[in-house]
Design a protein around this nucleic acid. Sequence first.
RNA 1: GGCGUGGUGGCCGAGUGGUUUAAGGCAGCGGUCUUGAAAACCGCCGAACCGGAAACGGUUCCGUGAGUUCGAAUCUCACCCACGCCGCCA
Length: 427
Amino acid sequence: MIDIKRLRQDPDGTRAALARRMDPSAIATFDRILDLDRRRREILVRAEALKAERNAATEEVAKLKRAGAPADALLASLKVSADAVKALDADLRAVDEALEPELLTVPNLLLPDVPDGDVTHNRVMHTWGEIPRFAFTPKPHWDLGEALGILDLANGAKVAGSGFPILRGMGAKLVRALANFMLDLHTREHGYEEVAPPYLVNRASMQGTGQLPKFGDELYTVEADGLYLIPTGEVPLTNIYRDTILDASSLPVAVCAWTPCFRREAGAAGKDTRGMIRVHQFDKVELVRLCRPEDTEAQHELIARQAETVLERLELPYRRLALAAGDTGFHSARTWDLEAWAAGVGTWLEVSSASTFTDFQARRAGIRFRPSPGARPEFVHTLNASGLAFPRTIIALLENNQEADGSVRIPGALAPYLGTDRLVARA
RNA sequence: GGCGUGGUGGCCGAGUGGUUUAAGGCAGCGGUCUUGAAAACCGCCGAACCGGAAACGGUUCCGUGAGUUCGAAUCUCACCCACGCCGCCA
């Protein structure tokens, strides 16, 4: 949620900042908000003045009653003003109910260094590693996975549907190995607390991190209980701190979790349907950090580096991409995607997305800290990064490390977790 | 799922219609005293919003929402959560 005071004080600047997102509906929303806010304050001032009068008169009644004097005349006039207060409160509620959903659908303001333009203006910040060369035509992961007996797409589709791959045998163990490898790295070397959070969350949590009300189409819902399956570990991890005032000494907060993620991919029908590039359920290790506003820049670089460290240990070539304004997510102020090279499909795949949300989520979720004892609470800044998403990491591992005989080499950092340094095709 | 008890400020806890601007305590902050610290004593000590250049003033908030009333932490209804017992169950 953006700061309505900022919007009120600098409407032109805010409108220009929103225009960078190239979303015309955001501007329309913005103008409706200005109008509603004006009306809200008009009514509020009148209602509060009337209530102040009423409170003074009510106190008079209390005094008279205590003195044993009659208060009938005063009571009669209070009855009239009570009705007026009720009417104004009803008006106020109506305006608030119109204003809130509008405010919740305004995207975050972008940081100044976010490149202007649409998705074609995403900028490569740096690249790491060597893109592997092959003496043969490298196979895509769906061929490799089936041949190795670790990926069973057909039965996944039978059991649940398209987009629900089954990993089995060494494939299932690979998931477990990746989880242990990543969690060990982040807890032992990067200072994260490991969390095993709920995978179903309530509406307030989805609204706190920004998935609702705007992106309900993307979520799987459990209607009978008013719950939602998490699309990312970011949701439960960040909402642990919803409606709390943190002690300054506890910042930065750093928590991580291995969770499944559930996404309907409603807007992506027909895209990446082959293999497991885009699926409805996948595992991911997620990193979440909460920090003081002045630390955002350093923390964003830090969390991105921590995700990159995973790729480097796995010996996967990758690049960091600064997303352009038009490609940056609704709640993000700046996002850097990490893309791993996948030799079989011959493309870069997003395996992590490192974002700072500035105070956008903190404002929605009421996550604050007290800068010093006795000082007024301020909103923290929230950041997150995948570290990493499993299916595409597996795709890159299989496709980049394949050999002519169909076997796959496992990088040294992962081999102890998997119990082997090579996956071999079934006879 | 059933019955019962309860939800009050950072924490504990009093408060059953009108001096509640929520008693008291703990923690925290400032001060007196002290070579320093502790103790003792004194003062300060919640959040959001609105008006205002500021000083300051006002409104709202006692789990959430609706209601009764001139006036609600206090009364009514619904819901949520916690704890206990029973039932069911990995």
